[in-house]
Design a protein around this nucleic acid. Sequence first.
DNA 1: CCGCCGGCATGATGCGCGTCATATGGCGGG
DNA 2: CCCGCCATATGACGCGCATCATGCCGGCGG
Lengths: 236, 236
Amino acid sequence: MSTLHAERLRHALSTLAMFKDLPAALRQRVEGMATLLEAGKGDELWHAGDSAEHLTVIVSGRVKVVRHADTGDVILEIFTAGETVGAVAVYNRMPYPASAIVMEPSVLLRLPRAEWFDLIEHDPGFSRGMMLELTRLNMALTRKLAAMHGTRVDARIAGLFLSLAERMGRTTEAGIEIPMTLSRQEIAELVGTTVESAIRVMSRWNREGVLVTARERFVIPDRDRLKAEANVTDEG
Amino acid sequence: MSTLHAERLRHALSTLAMFKDLPAALRQRVEGMATLLEAGKGDELWHAGDSAEHLTVIVSGRVKVVRHADTGDVILEIFTAGETVGAVAVYNRMPYPASAIVMEPSVLLRLPRAEWFDLIEHDPGFSRGMMLELTRLNMALTRKLAAMHGTRVDARIAGLFLSLAERMGRTTEAGIEIPMTLSRQEIAELVGTTVESAIRVMSRWNREGVLVTARERFVIPDRDRLKAEANVTDEG
DNA sequence: CCGCCGGCATGATGCGCGTCATATGGCGGG
DNA sequence: CCCGCCATATGACGCGCATCATGCCGGCGG
């Protein structure tokens, strides 16, 4: 990880929706206090238990938040460009309850807690944005919680990819394409199962042409077939 | 359910921490717009899919929020006096993603969405309180999500009661006492299992004296024994 | 070029727990 | 007083999936 200089910081701030419309005065101060960070695949931004001193905003790349359990890890959420990570811990002045790991080369912006509180306090738009993000996160978690329970593993994996398709899928002639690398291990942690079970489902679907694993992406030839395959109630 | 009159409303507002310190002007308006509601055990405040028009605050009693899945229901959270219910849906102007059911005779305060937004906008303290609640809810959900996964049913039930003991347990000579009625059905929905499994664990523990079910309360004679019984990592 | 390792794949086995079935005790209504 | 309803309880059975084990392939360093 390496710290970058002020020029790129200014540019990053102009890209991020949450800072773009900030009054000039506030934005000045943010420029002075925020720092940029470059991280590579596998880098750990923080580990569960670390004290949470600054808010992290993703400028580009992807970060997964992983909660450790004695039975294995669970990926709580995958965050992408424009989203904030670790807001809950920072806000409550408590140690991070989960670890954050970079999934691909990424650029992160870090804002000290005091500065962040200042923004929330003085800019109602900013505060609104934070609440929106928090409520969205909430909904994602509740959905996951409900899905996690009784349903079978293949249904959960189907649900995962259907939701990914909705969030970042591009329709091509081969079907819906999801441009994202995701190891079997990560798939397993996302739906709360073991690597072996994830592999079994994925390779079966690969054979049957329901969900094809390709280089750097997944392809869903027939969305309805994937839905039917595990008769999932369409929830996104 | 029956609507009560202005006198009790004023009294309710003075009890609730979130309204107590409101400037007089704002408080006047809230008094004009909020309504009180009395509900009995089993009453459904709303059903999943209903449109969310006002924020609900619990004056007294307990409310559970239940998410329906094809495999059975899951209790997302149990809310008690002073807490708000349904904030996420109301804030995002979307239909409730889950149902809210009253667990014991309760008094609810309902605040129209527009009025609530007004409070958030004009009173920074109020807004801060909402974010605190949201982040806390978030943490509870992430913990639940991590616990839900690989662990066995008895471990999850043990975790549930250990966390209840921490939140509302009183130490007596018989052990830690949790003053709360909770049917086996509700225990099952809280940890994401079936009634039968919950019953099996509970009656076994009853026999062994690990966790005793009594009238209107549960008793944990030996906290460490309950922890050991399902070798749970102490997480609260 | 070979050995090592990390990701992927597949088979065998056992057990937790969901499912179905049946029994008992308390409680309210006709 | 009896009957139906609900919560609690207990047993039998089977399936999904975690666990363990083994093999294959591509990349990388010595």
